[in-house]
Design a protein around this nucleic acid. Structure first.
Lengths: 190, 190
DNA sequence: AAATATTGTGACCAGATGGTTACAAATTTA
DNA sequence: TAAATTTGTAACCATCTGGTCACAATATTT
């Protein structure tokens, strides 16, 4: 066996990402990661300090909601910005399975293992949505709709339909996007 | 030991509900239920046919979203009905921890164990929201907002805040209720 | 009262979990 | 080259999981 710590660390890290993406938070465990990486689990403790350290590292790397950091340097934003931004956000949400699983994880637990992870990812989300911080009805309606978008995305992994809405159809998500845009417009006109 | 099958079955069933309420879907397992009921797990297999049968029984009993069956006999409904109905629905959602955990469960898996359970609970939800079945922007916006409501309820168990919104404050939920009502009105005026 | 059926228990199984330990092999340092 | 250090493995631990089994205790039927 050749010895290469850097490569082994990468194997472990990638195994973690892979499992999270494929099996979700429920599949993430020391044994499973070690097996997937094809490596002794001792090394996860030695190099990362266990699962906790692995999650911390993931948080610090920050592949979470990566594509949405465009607005990072903006202080204020217009309604047009908000619309554009929402469109990109929902797209990211639909496409990034890793982000989906982190969001799912937040609905399951918040223990010492995951605390740092959630702390970071939430700070990311906050950045994104700091755009619109006046306490209006638009804010609440908008937040609910974004929340609903997340909910339906997570739901769609296991359930094809919600009521009479087919979550597997591309058209459905277009409709949701349209509804979001329209809501922004209507509330703005008021 | 006295022998009383009916009483034992109740002990098991109540233990299941209790665990689901306290620990969520993650805590529900044969061993945990048997221990909580203070009974040999063999009996769960013998009387219910394992966890699967237990869930099936729960679904058939249908304590899920119980308070919302008022509209069961209505065919059509007005905007006023929808508003009233939404208010009661969100209240139920906030108060019924068992319902919350079933909804959480749906975001985790959909295997042979849970299939029947979800099938039933989803039919219940469908009844409730069949009120508003025209394919308008209101429908989509409204669905997203309801979904968001569920998402925030589930999130609030582990996370106090979402962005800058404090999910532990009663005021926040009032604001969400108001936003829902207002949205219905605005879309209706259009 | 005796035979039979039902109800309940605890031991046992294989396989999984997270975590630790002792040790071997490879690489660096001296 | 020899000693020390780093890297990697595998066995082992206690504890949990779902599931089955043989058996004892209690009711019920004959």
């Amino acid at each position: 066996m050749k010895k290469n710590r850097a490569a082994t660390e990468k194997k472990i890290y990638n195994a973690f990402l892979s499992i999270l993406k494929e099996k979700g938070p429920q599949g993430v465990g020391i044994n499973a990661i070690a097996k997937e990486a094809g490596v002794s689990k001792e090394l996860i403790y030695r190099y990362f300090g266990g699962l906790k350290g692995l999650l911390l590292q993931y948080a610090q790397k920050g592949d979470f909601f990566k594509s949405l950091l465009v607005l990072d340097n903006k202080q204020q934003s217009s309604v047009e910005d908000l619309k554009q931004f929402t469109k990109e956000g929902t797209k990211e949400l639909r496409e990034n399975k890793l982000t989906q699983e982190i969001l799912r994880w937040q609905l399951l637990e918040n223990n010492s293992e995951t605390k740092e992870l959630f702390k970071y990812t939430n700070s990311q989300i906050s950045k994104i949505f700091a755009v619109n911080d006046k306490d209006t009805s638009l804010n609440h309606a908008f937040q609910l709709m974004i929340g609903g978008y997340v909910y339906f995305i997570l739901l769609s992994k296991f359930h094809k339909k919600f009521i009479n809405t087919d979550l597997s159809k591309e058209e459905t998500w277009d409709n949701f996007d349209t509804a979001l845009e329209k809501t922004i417009e209507i509330f703005n006109k008021q």
